[in-house]
C-alpha cells in the first residue's frame, strides 16, 4: 500500500521565516510529530487565509502535504490564537522567549507530548497569572528537565555523595551541584546557589504549575534563580537566548511606565 501523501496534526507555531516573495516557512511544535517545518504558500499575501492563523504562538490544526524537500501546509484551523499575548508587549516578549527555548531544546522530529502540553499550558498561563517571572523560571526548569539537561540537585555530580540542606556550588559543565570536596576538581567556574534557591529548583522540577505558582518567593530568591538559570541555559544552548535581552529591555520599560500596558510584567 502506498504511503499517504498527506497528514493532519495539531501544534503551536513557534517560529516563522519569510520565503521568496509571498511564502512563509513555519516551525510548528506538535505532540505527535515533534518539531516540524513546512511551507505556507502565499501566507504573506494580504488575502491569504493561512497568514493570520500561522502567526507564532498560535495553536492550530493543520493539514500537510508531504513534499520532496519541504512539506506544505494546505489547510489551517485556529484552536487557540493566544490573543492576549499579542496585546501586551511584556507578555509577548516572554512568550517569544519560551518559544525560542522550546525551539532550542528540541531536535526536528523528536516527539515529546509532555513538552507540548507544557508549552501550551505556559502560553495560556502567561495570559492569566500575575507573577509572570515565577512562571518563566518554572518554565525554564521544566524545559531543561524534559530535554534531559535538568541539573542534579540531590547528589554531588562528581562523587555521588548526598548533599545536605545548605548552600552549594553549581557546575554548568558537570550538570549539577558539586560537594565541598570536589569543587577543586571540576575546573569550570562554579556558581554559588543558596539553600532556599536549591529547594525551589528541586520543587519546580517535581511539581506541576498548579502547585508551583502557590510557592511564595522573595525578590532575593527570584533574582538569584534568574541569574543562575540564565547562566545554565546559556551553557546548555551554547549561547544566550536571543530574545532574553528583549525581555529585559521591555521589563525595564514597564517599570518606568507604571500603570501602562506593561504593568503586569515583573521579569
Amino acid at each position: 500500500m502506498p504511503t499517504p501523501r498527506t497528514y493532519n496534526t495539531q501544534g503551536i507555531v513557534i517560529k516563522d521565516m519569510e520565503l521568496g516573495d509571498a511564502d512563509r516557512i513555519v516551525t510548528v511544535y506538535t505532540p505527535d510529530r515533534g518539531k516540524l517545518r513546512a511551507v505556507a504558500k502565499g501566507a504573506r499575501r494580504i488575502k491569504s487565509r493561512k497568514g493570520g492563523q500561522l502567526q507564532p504562538l498560535t495553536e492550530v490544526r493543520i493539514s500537510i502535504v508531504i513534499g520532496s524537500t519541504l512539506d506544505s501546509i494546505t489547510e489551517v484551523e485556529t484552536v487557540n490564537s493566544n490573543r492576549g499575548l499579542r496585546e501586551d508587549l511584556g507578555l509577548l516578549s516572554q512568550a517569544i522567549y519560551v518559544a525560542e527555548l522550546v525551539d532550542g531544546f528540541t531536535a526536528d522530529g523528536a516527539v515529546n507530548p509532555r513538552e507540548y502540553e507544557l508549552l501550551s499550558n505556559i502560553l495560556v498561563a502567561l495570559q492569566v497569572v500575575e507573577d509572570t517571572e515565577q512562571l518563566m523560571r518554572y518554565c525554564e526548569v521544566q524545559l531543561l528537565a524534559m530535554a534531559g539537561f535538568g541539573p542534579e540537585f540531590g547528589q554531588c555530580v562528581e562523587c555521588g555523595i548526598d548533599l545536605g540542606p545548605r548552600d552549594h556550588l553549581l557546575s554548568c559543565v558537570a550538570g549539577g551541584l558539586v560537594g565541598p570536596e570536589c569543587k577543586a576538581s571540576t575546573g569550570d567556574p562554579l556558581i554559588h546557589l543558596s539553600m532556599n534557591s536549591i529547594k525551589v529548583l528541586r520543587f519546580f522540577q517535581d511539581v506541576g504549575w498548579d502547585q508551583a505558582q502557590n510557592l511564595p518567593l522573595t525578590g532575593e530568591i527570584k533574582s538569584e534563580l534568574k541569574r543562575v538559570l540564565a547562566a545554565y541555559l546559556a551553557y546548555v544552548l551554547d549561547r544566550e537566548p536571543r530574545s532574553a535581552g528583549f525581555v529585559t529591555q521591555v521589563a525595564a520599560m514597564g517599570k518606568t511606565d507604571s500603570g501602562g500596558p506593561l504593568g503586569s510584567t515583573s521579569t
Binding site: 497568514g51 508587549l89 509577548l92 517569544i96 521591555v250 520599560m253 501602562g260
Partner: peptide, 19 residues
C-alpha cells in the same frame, strides 16, 4: 505589518511615544 513582529515593534514604539 499586522504580524507578531510588526505588532511587537508597534507596541514598543507606542510605549516610547506615550509619555
Amino acid at each position: 505589518n499586522p504580524n507578531v513582529e510588526g505588532e511587537a515593534t508597534s507596541m514598543f514604539i507606542h510605549n516610547l511615544i506615550s509619555p
